[in-house]
Amino acid sequence: MQMLQVRPQIHQFNHVQEFAEFFNIGAGDFILTHEFLYTPYLKELHLDADFLFQEKYGVGEPSDEMIDAIIQAMEGKEYKRIIAIGGGTVIDIAKLLTIKDAKHALDLFEKKIPLIKSRELILVPTTCGTGSEVTNVSIAEIKSKHTKMGLAVDELYANHAVLIPELVRGLPYKFFVTSSIDALIHGVESFVSPKSNAFTELFSLKAIETIIKGYQQIIERGPDYRLNILSNFAFGSTWAGVAFANTGVGAVHAMSYPLGGNYHVPHGEANYQFFIEVFKTYNHKQPNGKIKELNEFLGKILAVDDISCVYDKLAELLEQLLNRKPLREYGMKEEEIETFTDNVISGQQRLLVNNYVPLSRNEIRDIFHALY
């Protein structure tokens, strides 16, 4: 039985110039990034590579329309390497650009063409949460289906994952919080996944501890203190990514997709809405299983004597960083509780199989209802 796989080589550099020199970036390289990253960090390096700014092809999280437009912009050019410098959107798109003869994103997600990797892939995350640089997963909104779809195949693994904390310094506070909460959820969901084991747990627990302790320092010393501990969050995100690349994530992510797909709620923020309620439901259904170990671990970090209160304490901590809103405030309608529930059950079995314990349709509906 395979227990752990870490596919990309993982690198760290203090500055972008060191990264560019190490990988000898130049002709034959295609770099997908943002103009707000290119101007301060890349422009002055005068790299002989082709750059494309993702925001020129759409805003927000990746969609099939955005991906198709970028694929079309690359037509007729030969590239040996795809390099992504950005957040989850840029990274998830870049993974798909390595597939031979890809023309339409939907064909990839529905596996209508052979998935053959034809280019080397280098991923440089600039947020504190996606973990996508070490996973084989790409997620995109499929406009015609009004939801998100995921593609998880080994061909999407990067050859190299590169951590450069300098690139995270300009991340606005809210996006720092939502992206790092996403990483925290990756760590927590992977720990209780049926696929977790002694090796993945090491990565899960280290990520959870690092991120929560970082939050405690930020709450005590103020939001700007995050700039002093960005390396901790960069490592925490990648550790959580290694964990969930091997175990998968579950109902928190599955339930967030209809909200994100229909109302364009950023991924980390959408996950945040469901995190505590899903784990309270798990805990109520089976408090003496793997979740008991998680609760005791969280209780020590949060200094909670009564672990039955651990999720209330965790919610209190996260609320000091970012207020959680009722789902209705995003525009969700009450009648969508039923349709979103059915959407999750029919479209997210890939994730639901990773639940700590199975959730019935009524239980999924009740979580939507409680948060509405």
Rank of each mutant, 00 (worst) to 15 (best):
M3W: 07
L4C: 05
L4P: 06
Q12H: 14
Q12T: 14
N14L: 14
V16K: 00
F23K: 14
N24P: 06
G26W: 12
G28P: 12
D29I: 08
L32Q: 09
T33M: 04
P40H: 03
Y41S: 11
L47V: 09
L47C: 08
A49M: 07
D50N: 07
F51E: 11
L52M: 12
K56V: 03
K56T: 01
V59I: 13
S63Q: 00
S63F: 02
S63P: 04
M66T: 05
M66Y: 04
I67R: 02
D68T: 08
D68M: 06
I71T: 07
E78Y: 09
R81Y: 00
A84D: 03
A84C: 06
A84T: 08
I85E: 05
G87K: 07
T89F: 06
V90I: 14
V90H: 10
I99S: 00
A102P: 03
L108I: 04
K111I: 00
P114D: 10
P114C: 11
I116G: 03
S118R: 09
R119V: 08
R119L: 10
E120L: 07
L121G: 11
I122H: 10
P125A: 08
C128N: 13
S132Q: 08
E133Q: 12
E133Y: 03
E133C: 15
T135N: 14
L151P: 01
V153K: 04
E155P: 05
A158Q: 06
V162G: 03
E166K: 01
G170L: 07
G170Y: 05
T178S: 15
I185F: 03
V192Y: 12
T210V: 15
T210I: 14
I218Q: 08
G222M: 08
P223T: 12
N232G: 13
S237G: 06
A240N: 04
G241L: 03
G241S: 04
G241Y: 13
V242F: 09
A245C: 04
T247V: 08
V249I: 15
A251C: 00
A254Q: 00
P258N: 11
G261R: 12
P266M: 15
P266D: 12
G268K: 09
A270Q: 10
F274Y: 10
Q286I: 02
P287C: 07
E293T: 13
E293R: 14
E293V: 07
L294G: 11
E296S: 11
F297K: 13
L298M: 02
G299H: 02
K300P: 03
D306Q: 04
S308A: 14
C309I: 00
C309N: 10
V310P: 05
L314H: 06
E319T: 15
Q320P: 03
Q320L: 14
L321N: 04
N323I: 06
L327A: 01
E329I: 01
Y330L: 11
M332C: 06
E334A: 13
E336L: 10
E338R: 09
T339I: 15
F340R: 10
F340L: 11
D342Y: 08
V344M: 03
V344Q: 00
S346Q: 14
G347E: 07
Q348W: 00
R350A: 04
L352Q: 09
V357W: 04
L359C: 00
S360Q: 05
I364E: 02
A370Q: 15
